[in-house]
Every structure is written in C-alpha cells, then in structure tokens.
Design a protein around this nucleic acid. Structure first.
Lengths: 124, 124
DNA sequence: GAGCGTAATATAGCTGAGGGAATAACGGGT
DNA sequence: ACCCGTTATTCCCTCAGCTATATTACGCTC
C-alpha cells in the first residue's frame, strides 16, 4: 500500500554537464551547506524545528542534530530554542544564523556562475 | 582481532573554511570526478584494475563498477581491457581517458583558486 | 494543576552503498 | 594440457545515515 510519504529519490538522469558544490567546514567537520541553509529558512518560515523538518520531509531527529551541530560550532548560536511555554515552545533563527544563510547563498550563486563559465571548456 | 586493513575514515577535524567539489554528470548521473580521476591514474601506473584498486584501498568490485560506468557513458571508452593472455590480461587507459583526466584536474585547480578568492569574504 | 504543543532524548528498524570472498571465464606461455 | 594472473560475476555481510516511534521535560495559558 502507498505509504503517506513516498520520498521518491530524485536520481533522475541529470543533464550532462559540469556540476559542483560548496560548503563551509568548522571544527567538527561540515558546518554549513545547502541542506542546513534550507532548514534554517524553513525554521524562520514555520517557527519550529518540528514543522520545518516536516515541511522538507526530514526526520525531526535529523533536523535537531543539524541545528545542534551548527550551534556547537558557531561562535554565536544560529538558532535559539524555547521548550515549553506558549504553544509548547519553538525555535527562532538569530541574526548570526541569518547572516550565515545570506553568506551561503552568495557563495552558491558565485559557484553557479563559475560552473557556467568553466563548462564552456568542457568537451565530452 | 586486528583486521588486515583498518580503513580509518578520515573524519578528522578539518580546518574551518570554505570547501567545494566539482564533477561531471553524464546520462546516468555521476560520470567523472575526483575518485575516478585518481583511479584512472592508478590504472595507467599499474596496468591493471586489480592493482590500481589495491593501491588505493578500494575493492576490485567497486573499481570495476566505476570503470564500467565511465565506459558506458563516454562516447569512446576510457579504459580498454584484456581478459586472459600474457600476464592474465590487463587494463589500459585510452587517449579519451587521458583527456578526461587532464580536463578534470583543470576544473579542480580552477575551483581551488575560486574557493581561495571567495574565502576572503567569509566571516564565521 | 491540567492541557497543550513543542523541544529533547532514547531506542529500534530500514535501506543503500560499499566491502570481502569465492568462483568462473579467458587466452597466451610453457 | 596445464599454469598463471587478470577480468568478470555472484552472493552475503557490514556499516552509516537516516527513519520511525515512543517517552520525558518544559513552561505558558486557562
């Protein structure tokens, strides 16, 4: 029977061409990248880790680990969290977190431009 | 008991900073990247898939899959292979394969320069 | 203090990628 | 005909990343 969430791995045959990724490393390894940037944006949008995780089909456990990893490695926390209280609590992205998001998307954009330039040198 | 090969995953705490990767996609997905470039170089060096795989602590099965994947996606094969015969056979990297190696390292080098430039904009 | 919805934590299960080992096929040398 | 070392193929195992589920802690509101 069709489960609620189908998950359909996007392994579709991608167009041939040059591809790339950027991320930032921290003291413990990966510190900030595409997935974490999106997660933070969803937290801003929804105000909670639970809803943010659901909205991107991610297990809460995994989302919490990512948030925890960022907060441990950043000088100032990227996410402030409240347990209990009005509505049961919630999560809020700090200024530092917002800056990280902006910085990442800038790197991401620059990389796409770089790839487009380099791809002209490509002959398969 | 201590196994023969310990495999020690290099998850060491990396220096904080900007990191990145480039690769080429083909009709079936990943077509050429860092690992495959090194593999081809080892095949040139040793003249066989078996020895190349051993030299980089990779299972023959995996190495063969990578070679097969490249040969299926490339217009001209990157590796020509001989089973049986003198010395049991062997593998040889074609001109097309050598060109792919050169092209990849060029992209790789350009990316490193790009990352170094971009990293100046980074503030953790 | 009961209810509520969230964070936080623990535990077990799933799954895909890769590893290890075993075996057959191959073909020139001797 | 046999030996040899490699390619090619098969089967099973392990491990990590992530999922799924359940339970507890929390603190505001009523």
């Amino acid at each position: 029977m069709p489960k609620k969430r189908e998950k359909e791995k996007k392994n579709g045959p991608s167009r041939p061409g040059l591809r790339g990724r950027v991320w930032m490393d921290g003291p413990e390894g990966t510190f900030f990248g595409h997935g974490r940037a999106v997660l933070l944006e969803r937290i801003i949008e929804h105000g909670s880790i639970t809803k943010a995780a659901k909205s991107m089909d991610m297990a809460y456990r995994h989302a919490w680990d990512l948030v925890d990893s960022m907060n441990r490695q950043a000088k100032e926390p990227f996410v402030e969290v409240a347990t209990g209280g009005k509505g049961g609590g919630g999560a809020r992205v700090t200024k530092a977190g917002e800056q990280a998001i902006k910085m990442f998307w800038r790197f991401h954009k620059d990389l796409q431009a770089f790839l487009k330039r380099e791809e002209k040198k490509l002959r398969l």
